[in-house]
Design a protein around this nucleic acid. Sequence first.
DNA 1: CCTCAACCGGAGCGATAGCTCCGTTTCTTC
DNA 2: GAAGAAACGGAGCTATCGCTCCGGTTGAGG
Lengths: 215, 215
Amino acid sequence: MSEAPPTKELRRDAKRNRERIVATARELFAGDGIEASVEDITRQAGVGMGTLYRHFATKEELIDAVLEDAFDELIALAEEAIADDDAWRGFTTFLEQTLERHVANRGLKDVVASAEHGRERAHAMRERLRPLVRQMIERAQAQGALRRDFTAEDVPVLFWAGGGVIAATATVAPDAWRRQLRFCLDGLQPAAATPLTVPPLTRDQLDRSAGRGRA
Amino acid sequence: MSEAPPTKELRRDAKRNRERIVATARELFAGDGIEASVEDITRQAGVGMGTLYRHFATKEELIDAVLEDAFDELIALAEEAIADDDAWRGFTTFLEQTLERHVANRGLKDVVASAEHGRERAHAMRERLRPLVRQMIERAQAQGALRRDFTAEDVPVLFWAGGGVIAATATVAPDAWRRQLRFCLDGLQPAAATPLTVPPLTRDQLDRSAGRGRA
DNA sequence: CCTCAACCGGAGCGATAGCTCCGTTTCTTC
DNA sequence: GAAGAAACGGAGCTATCGCTCCGGTTGAGG
């Protein structure tokens, strides 16, 4: 699982070029989403196609490597949320800060909240996030701040919803998603709860959602 | 505005082929979204490329023509909502039925809830829908069933949110959006309302959102 | 400084998309 | 049933994307 770091030792120019590629890709993915073309990346990084593909076997691999930091940050946000004595505040802050990242980093949103693109690091991030989210929710429910029919599997749904708003409005009104989130959060308080008519997603459904295409 | 119907009179085969194209496109757009390729459409309709492009100058025009019925249905749903004595029930039913259409018709979702694709009929539909939605909301607020800081400009935001959930889950759990909508609706009741931190979208922002690209 | 493995760049491949062009066929009219 | 306007169909154009291939270049060890 954990990529052993026995990678010999890169030649100086190779190391420099790799860093340039990652830095440029980070910038372009953040701004344009993962649909930024590899050609744009190489041109702006000042390297050739061959160079990029010697370091990354595929574009997906590059995406995965570029977003590693962002993934780690999401984990850190979840841990902060759990550390908050006020579980409800922790939970809402986690949602807000995650969606703020989605606005600032379209590539992150594309991988987390939208389509497939489940490479190793992304998958590992989801695995690490899952128990944290579950704990976050259980604590908020135990403190009586979150309706009891809300489940951990509903969290990705909130991200998909926020992602939809962000995709449509980010360039024009980068805070528009906050209204939508507020409405949802107000509806998540126990006092506001009205019966749900459908069950939450199962683990299996979650894995297949926005996962491996429409197979 | 209203396309005058002075179009001479199509030859019999031309008329037949046009109908085949529209019928096939309707089916493929509903199933695969507007990304269904024109080649697939012509093949399945049993016509050539030239035939399609004699009837529709561009793919966008075909989309617009194909979705005309779906647009009319949305208008009808809005009118039904307004006719309901219980404004809240009318409003929620409108949202539910619209999103049901989005699940059943991916092409409709693509045009209404997602990207640009603002051809004439789509634009006209939005113009017709706007006052109906406004009325729907004002009535629900007057009846004390809807929080007062909710505006007509928030309705597209709800569609974008629902569209995000549908895009991710439709093939795996076609009803998953109902949970998200329930949470939101519960949060739209006056008793649940918590202060919003950002203003609603302006008309101008709305027009540019998911509108003409990232210009 | 010399050598050669390691690394570089970018033309080009193959797939896919929307769309055009034009030789051929078909319908309608007289 | 002949003629010509109208419509047909599909090969192929252009553009874009991810990715490969290979002749040339560079940097580190002896």
